Simulated scan of single mutants.
Amino acid sequence: MVNVLFSAKPASWDEYEAPLHAAFEKACIDAQLGTDLPPEDVDYIVYAPSGPVSDFTPFTKLKAVLSLWAGVETMVDNPTLHVPLCRMVDHGLTESMVEWVTGHVLRYHLGMDRFITAQDGVWRAGSAAPLARDRKVCVLGLGALGSACAQSLVHLKFDVHGWSRSPKAVEGVTCHHGDAGLRDALADADMVALLLPDTPATESVLNAESISFMRRGGFVVNPGRGPLIDDDALLAALDSGQLAHATLDVFRVEPLPKDHPFWAHPKVTVTPHIAAETKAGTASEVIAENIRRGEAGKPFLHLVDRQAGY
């Protein structure tokens, strides 16, 4: 029997208890699962930073920490964590992210805001959108989420370019990497979607210089991480017309403070970190599979590279 500690907000336990038990049963894992197990008996921790555990020292038998979150920037530097850390790559979350990104790219491509906000009796003929193949969309970040979103846009026939810190290959996507590749990825882009992890190497990747590479009047969607964008540079680009609009789901401080200029800016849409969230049913299957692999001596899925930060 393996002992699995669930360490997250109490409300999460209500959501996850039944799906985890079902996933363990399906994977033929004999497990004791709970929120209050003796630390010295715990083999695995199903973990969120919002839970009660921050010091892993008492967990002397611990084999791995299995995150419920896709982002692990608050975990990688924990000095007490010396076992494998696995981030959550949940196909339910991925589907949600693909839907959100694709929806907002299409919203901008088709110019839907013009018609939603201008029901004023004026017949605006001649304002049809170009074909998707004539729009360049850049996806910054080609991990599991970024690649899935990029391929969804490829299927709609957009001219999709992607950028990552290290070389990647995604079918149908023109891939760029490294500092030198960022300019080419963003050059004349009509739309940019940010799906990078939050690391020192990616902070403010969208700044005054990189925004200037885009086609004038472009659009930004950010469901990735707040620190990926230089807020002041974004506001300046919106005010100058270099950018036409930005839809932001994540922010440097959350909830976004009421006095933040994003709330009142006419060219910013704020959504409250709702682009995608981990789904208890599918996430439980991922956790069960990783515990099965751990017990079988196989490599863990979605293992975090501590030096890279994701």
Rank of each mutant, 00 (worst) to 15 (best):
V2Q: 08
S7Y: 06
A8M: 08
P10E: 04
P10W: 05
D14Q: 15
D14E: 15
A22E: 14
A27D: 05
D30L: 10
D36P: 06
D36T: 13
A48Q: 02
F56S: 00
P58T: 01
P58W: 00
F59K: 03
V65F: 01
L66V: 02
A70R: 05
E73T: 05
N78C: 09
N78Q: 08
V83I: 06
V89T: 02
L93G: 01
T94K: 14
W100Y: 15
V101K: 09
H104Q: 15
H109I: 08
M112G: 05
T117N: 14
W123T: 12
R124D: 08
G126L: 12
A129F: 06
A132E: 02
A132K: 03
R133A: 11
R135E: 11
C138S: 15
C138L: 09
V139L: 09
L140M: 09
G143Y: 03
A144D: 12
G146H: 07
Q151K: 13
L153P: 09
V154S: 03
L156F: 07
H161S: 11
S164G: 10
R165H: 07
S166F: 01
P167S: 10
A169H: 14
H176Q: 05
R183L: 11
A189W: 04
M191G: 01
A193Y: 08
L196Q: 05
P197M: 12
D198W: 10
T202Q: 08
L206R: 09
A208L: 05
M214C: 15
R215N: 04
G218Y: 06
G218E: 05
N222F: 10
G224F: 03
I229E: 06
L234N: 08
L234K: 11
L234F: 12
A236S: 13
L238I: 13
G241K: 07
H245V: 04
A246Y: 07
T247R: 13
F251W: 08
L256P: 05
P257Q: 09
H260C: 10
P261E: 07
W263A: 12
P266E: 04
K267W: 03
P272Y: 14
P272Q: 14
E285H: 10
R292W: 09
R293F: 01
Q307A: 14
G309R: 01
